[in-house]
Simulated assay, not measured.
Amino acid sequence: MGEEEENKDIVIGGETVNPGQNKLLTISIDRLPTGTLIDIPIYVFNAKKPGPTILIQAGLHGDEINGIEIVRRMLYEKRFKITKGAVIAVPILNIFGFIHFSRDVPDGKDVNRSFPGNRTGSMASRIAYHYVSEIMHQMDFGIDLHTGANQRNNFPQIRYTEEDPNSIKLAKVFNAPFSFSSRLIRGSFRNAAFKMQKPTVVFEAGESMRFDDFAIREGMQGILNVLKHFKMISKIEPVYAERSKTIHLQDHKWLRAPTAGMFIPKIINGSEIKKGQQMGMVTDTYAKNTKKIKAPYDGYLFCVNHQAVVNQGDALFHVGR
Rank of each mutant, 00 (worst) to 15 (best):
148 G>M: 02
237 E>A: 10
157 Q>I: 14
37 L>Y: 11
122 S>R: 05
7 N>P: 06
260 A>Y: 05
149 A>R: 09
59 G>N: 03
313 G>F: 01
283 T>Q: 10
260 A>M: 05
89 A>C: 12
174 F>N: 02
77 E>T: 10
42 I>G: 10
201 V>T: 04
277 Q>S: 04
71 V>E: 10
151 Q>L: 15
302 F>M: 02
216 I>G: 07
40 I>Y: 12
267 I>P: 07
81 K>I: 10
19 P>Q: 06
311 N>F: 10
164 D>Y: 02
109 K>G: 07
289 N>E: 09
38 I>E: 05
242 E>R: 07
3 E>K: 15
72 R>F: 13
222 G>K: 00
257 A>K: 02
99 I>H: 12
255 L>P: 00
224 L>A: 12
300 Y>G: 05
129 Y>P: 03
124 A>Q: 06
31 R>E: 15
110 D>M: 11
116 P>H: 10
9 D>P: 04
74 M>C: 14
86 A>N: 12
34 T>K: 13
301 L>P: 03
65 I>T: 12
143 I>V: 14
86 A>P: 10
77 E>Y: 03
1 M>H: 13
49 K>S: 14
309 V>W: 12
23 K>I: 05
250 Q>A: 13
215 A>G: 05
163 E>D: 12
264 I>G: 06
132 V>F: 00
234 S>P: 00
267 I>G: 03
163 E>Y: 03
177 P>Y: 00
159 R>Y: 11
58 A>M: 07
256 R>F: 01
154 N>I: 00
254 W>L: 02
297 Y>P: 11
218 E>R: 09
281 M>R: 08
321 R>S: 14
199 P>W: 01
288 K>W: 04
31 R>V: 11
111 V>K: 04
83 T>P: 04
111 V>M: 12
79 R>F: 07
109 K>H: 15
320 G>D: 06
214 F>C: 03
249 L>T: 05
305 N>G: 01
50 P>N: 07
261 G>Q: 03
70 I>E: 08
68 I>T: 14
149 A>G: 05
265 P>A: 04
24 L>D: 09
113 R>P: 07
134 E>A: 10
93 L>A: 13
166 N>C: 02
212 D>I: 03
278 Q>S: 06
83 T>F: 09
321 R>V: 13
16 T>E: 14
54 I>M: 04
51 G>M: 06
81 K>V: 13
123 M>I: 14
315 A>C: 08
86 A>I: 07
248 H>N: 11
296 P>S: 00
29 I>K: 04
241 A>N: 09
227 L>V: 05
72 R>C: 11
111 V>Y: 13
282 V>M: 00
271 S>P: 05
298 D>T: 07
313 G>K: 03
204 E>V: 00
22 N>M: 13
10 I>Q: 10
200 T>A: 09
188 S>L: 07
307 Q>K: 15
162 E>H: 08
87 V>L: 11
76 Y>M: 11
246 T>Q: 00
115 F>L: 02
296 P>G: 08
142 G>V: 02
309 V>D: 04
284 D>E: 00
18 N>Q: 15
258 P>C: 00
132 V>C: 08
200 T>F: 08
